[in-house]
Design a protein around this nucleic acid. Structure first.
Lengths: 222, 222
DNA sequence: AACAATGTAATAACGTTGTTATAGAGTAGC
DNA sequence: GCTACTCTATAACAACGTTATTACATTGTT
């Protein structure tokens, strides 16, 4: 890291051009990076203000001036986690079979949860207590739900599923996905539980349950 | 409270008969009662060792000699919560229609979660961090699952549902119930979400999805 | 009946947490 | 050149879980 020292600034005060945009706060990024690493590698218990600043440089006030406190850092991670989830869901290609697309979204959801357990814990399990919801955190969560609702809408439009409302269908699916991975991650369930089977079979059954009467096509017709 | 003073014991050392069973530790019960109250009325943040002993009498050592620390108290609440859930599920009468019984179990589950949010938080959401799972906590959780599995087994035996395994079916149902109430309690979901509708419709759809092909009977045939 | 031993309870202390107050250094404007 | 201001670092504070220490009551023994 080629730090720009104050003496460099003094040397060319007017002609100085930042190598990075001026409004990018490197300390802010370093704090988030340290928080990410601590959370992922050592768990929620290791995510303390002192540890964060020990790894990101500076003093404790760094966290307070930039994020307003520890909660602000956690909120940033919360939003980031939902952005990642939304981005991952967006990678699901749209094929000619919207039901298969929706099923693939379900699998992506579980993959996200398993590969980002610490993010998932912050997002859903209150891994860091006393996280207060703001408009921004709500918006981030709704973004991910919107991704699911779009896929749900396509299944309704195609007549593959029956539901009063695409957003409600998305909520039903989301809650089901969340319930299974939540128990899997805790972990909590019968010993030697086959979680992949539980997840795919429950998802398939739920989709079957929303299938129009007479259609018995499962989500993976192979 | 008629305390038995040491002088009473000295007065009739051999003939003394305790008015309560000797192994009932009143301090232990007082600690649990205080913890229950603090958790229910002031939330997980108020559940501190010092608050507990301030309300239950004695000193901090009381908690350590009887529960080994704060975690021990939380574990006791965890087990108690599952015992309550199991007891509530057990009240579900067995009728001639096992599918209706199962559906009623689903409704009881949500009722428990809504009426015992603080217990539910301890049991599933890690409301108190760093709760380590022990054999006893596992057994308590499996007791509640067993209640559901018994109801699930009856639907399979009656041919109302199709599943490889009653315990797996119970796990599927449990995870789905949990997912919905978990999002409802947080709260996290679309604004103005009709949670009772989401819960009953998702449950109904899931049960439909496990119905044998050709049977389109929903869980509430009225 | 007096005394050592034992186990329990209360007090105080320790290390860590999130947060805040205080003091210091460097920068911009006049 | 001086003032005002922002940002940073150090230190302090209250509260937390936990542990060490001290006092005390009870018991078994002589």
């Amino acid at each position: 890291m080629t730090a720009v020292t104050p003496s460099d600034r003094r040397a060319q005060p007017a002609r100085y051009v930042a190598t990075v945009p001026l409004d990018v706060d490197e300390s802010r990024l370093a704090i988030l990076e340290a928080a990410r690493r601590l959370l992922a590698e050592e768990g929620a218990g290791a995510l303390t203000v002192r540890r964060i600043v020990a790894e990101s440089g500076g003093s404790t006030m760094n966290v307070y001036s930039r994020f307003g406190g520890k909660n602000g850092v956690v909120q940033a991670l919360f939003i980031e986690g939902f952005a990642r989830l939304t981005a991952l869901m967006a990678t699901s290609a749209q094929t000619e079979d919207p039901l298969v697309d929706l099923y693939r979204c379900a699998m992506l959801y579980r993959r996200f949860a398993l590969e980002n357990r610490t993010y998932y814990g912050v997002m859903f399990e209150g891994a860091v207590p006393d996280l207060v919801a703001t408009d921004e955190t709500r918006a981030a969560a709704m973004g991910a739900l919107g991704m699911l609702a779009a896929a749900a809408q396509r299944t309704i439009d195609a007549g593959a599923l029956v539901h009063e409302n695409a957003q409600s269908l998305a909520a039903d699916l989301w809650a089901t996905f969340h319930g299974i991975v939540s128990l899997e991650l805790r972990p909590m369930g019968p010993p030697d539980c086959d979680w992949p089977a539980r997840y795919s079979e429950t998802t398939a059954a739920l989709l079957r349950g929303f299938t129009p009467i007479g259609m018995s096509v499962g989500p993976h017709p192979d």
